[in-house]
Amino acid sequence: MNRAQKNRLKDKVFKGLGITATFLGIVILAIFIGFILYQGMERISWEFVMSLPSRFAEQSGIYTAWMGTVWVLVCTTLISFPLGVGAGIYLEEYGKKNWWNTFLEINISNLAGVPSVIYGLLGLGVFVRMMKMGNSILAGSLTLSLLILPVIIVSTREALRAVPSTIKEASVAMGASKWQTIWHQILPASFGGILTGVILALSRAVGETAPLIVVGALVYVPFAPTSPLDEFTVLPVQIFNWVTRPQQEFVINAAAGIIVLLGITFVMNGIAVYLRNKWQSKMNW
């Protein structure tokens, strides 16, 4: 075999390797999910969804867990959405090139890299203890809001940047003030993109476990929460609790819980992707 042939062979081998690598992760994930479905599907029932947790695996359900997840999701949205979008607007539209804004940006990129369990320690120290919120939904939601803030800020800025500067110019030239331009032109034009980013960030919050365990999302909560100051647990924490029990029946419960959690995560991501595509096709200038 001469050199050229050898090189061509290498090329072909790598191509095969590339295809394998690309689909390896996806295939493994598919196998995992298949396994989960196989194990947990039998447990999925109306009763499972509507039952309180119990010492007995067969009577145990995820009612308090998903109620807690919904509460946390709503509170986290209410806190992180305005904060994150506001900060994104500030940095993208008002920020000038000076040391303060450079510092803000470096800080945000740093926060994005802080492990989520550290946010849990922050929430434990500040919200649970210092502000005396206890192991409440509010404390958990505030913690998660800070955790996803960098993600929302970054995606908001990207969406704002995608609005052509010609639109801003046209508005400003009409005598619109800065905020009028942002409110009437830039935000409507970038809203799809912003919403996509926020939903993706929230779907991450829904799956977060470690920071909520640290702020004390109790593993056993006998009642569904009725106010933001109530104690709570969430789906991922409930799953963690079940996984760590030795009995096989609880493992099946965990698998069933995972099916529900994955369902929520995938639906949220699906909505985000749908919105992004719709927004991109509508907003091509």
Partner: peptide, 19 residues
Amino acid sequence: LEVLAVVPTVVYGFFALMI
């Protein structure tokens, strides 16, 4: 591929332990 990063980590923990 992004789906791999979307799955909650507690789920991956289950995979590691059980599968």
